[in-house]
Computed example of a mutant assay.
Amino acid sequence: MSTGSMRDAMRLLTAVERTPEQERTLGRVREKCRTVDGRLHGQGIDLEVSVAQALEELLDGTVGAAEGPGYHYALQALISSYFSDTHDLGDWRRQSWFWTVDEELSRVGVPARLALSRILTSGPPVRLPPAGDTTPWMGTFPTELAAEFVAAHEAVLARVDPQVRETVEVFLKAIRFEAEEWASADEDRRSGQDTMFFWCA
């Protein structure tokens, strides 16, 4: 999970004429994409559309494949260049576990709009071809709602299954930090750090 300005990331993706700073950022993003391609290749995974190629297609608006995880990896590389406050939330074997967590939390009154699975799998901020598998997946959540998320979940922790509580506490630690940062920031800083971005691969 990271926090930063989604608007700046989307400006790089949609810029007609890029500023020198955007070009420098794009150079770093391209290098990240090549690194991901190398890592995947080392794992025996060769994508039909490589991450580096997917980035260029996204930048040019010429996405040619019907599906492919390369586009998701490329967008993550682009977004992460504008985000900070990175939190490693751990390894989760089954995406379906979060639906179990949500069922338990719904039972004790947590609103559906604050459900973990909804946040984690809400999808990319732009249309992408489907990844074609259960991973990678991504989601976004407005930082201004972090305090509401924390309050809703902290209020019910004592009444949920211990395994569910353990999962929720992992996310609460990171999101509580973002809520505190948001509350202490002035309005100008808030406008530049307004989105939490969740990524699983």
Rank of each mutant, 00 (worst) to 15 (best):
V51H: 03
E148G: 02
S2M: 12
A77M: 14
S5Y: 10
Q95K: 13
I119Y: 01
V51K: 04
R113Q: 11
R30V: 05
D37Q: 02
G42H: 04
T62R: 15
S106K: 12
A155S: 09
A158S: 11
P129Q: 05
P142V: 00
L105F: 02
P162E: 15
E67R: 14
V108P: 02
E56V: 08
W182R: 02
W137H: 13
V126C: 10
S122G: 15
S106C: 08
V110Y: 03
E31W: 04
T3Q: 13
R34E: 07
M10P: 07
E57Q: 15
A52E: 14
A146V: 00
P124M: 05
T25G: 12
A183V: 03
F171S: 02
T25K: 15
R28H: 10
W92C: 05
H72V: 03
S117F: 13
A174D: 02
A9T: 08
S96Y: 13
A9W: 07
Q43W: 13
R24S: 13
L116M: 12
G38D: 02
S122H: 06
M10Y: 10
A174Q: 00
D60A: 15
Y82L: 02
D194H: 14
S2T: 10
V101T: 08
R34H: 07
M196Q: 12
A155G: 03
V29F: 04
M1S: 10
G4V: 09
P20G: 11
G139T: 00
V49H: 05
V168Q: 00
G192K: 15
K173D: 12
F149E: 03
S96V: 14
W182T: 05
S191I: 08
A77F: 03
E166K: 10
M196C: 11
R30G: 02
R165Y: 01
R176I: 02
E148S: 01
R30A: 11
A147K: 01
A15V: 08
E187K: 10
S81D: 11
R18H: 06
V101A: 07
L120P: 01
G64M: 09
R107H: 09
K173S: 10
G68W: 09
L55R: 06
S96N: 10
H41M: 10
D102C: 07
K173V: 04
G27R: 08
W97H: 13
R39Q: 13
S84Y: 13
R159H: 09
D133T: 10
A52V: 05
A77H: 05
D102W: 01
G61F: 08
T195S: 08
S117Y: 13
L120V: 04
G139S: 04
V51E: 01
V36A: 06
R7M: 11
D88E: 12
R176L: 03
V164W: 02
E181P: 03
V170E: 02
G90P: 05
T195F: 08
L116Y: 03
E166Q: 12
E23R: 14
Y82A: 07
E21A: 15
L172D: 00
C33M: 03
Y82T: 00
G139Q: 04
R30H: 06
D8F: 13
S80L: 11
R94Q: 09
S117M: 11
R39M: 12
D161Q: 09
T14Q: 15
W137D: 04
L78M: 05
F177H: 14
A15G: 07
P136H: 09
T62H: 11
D188W: 09
R39D: 06
E21N: 11
V156S: 00
H72Y: 06
E178P: 01
F198E: 00
L12R: 08
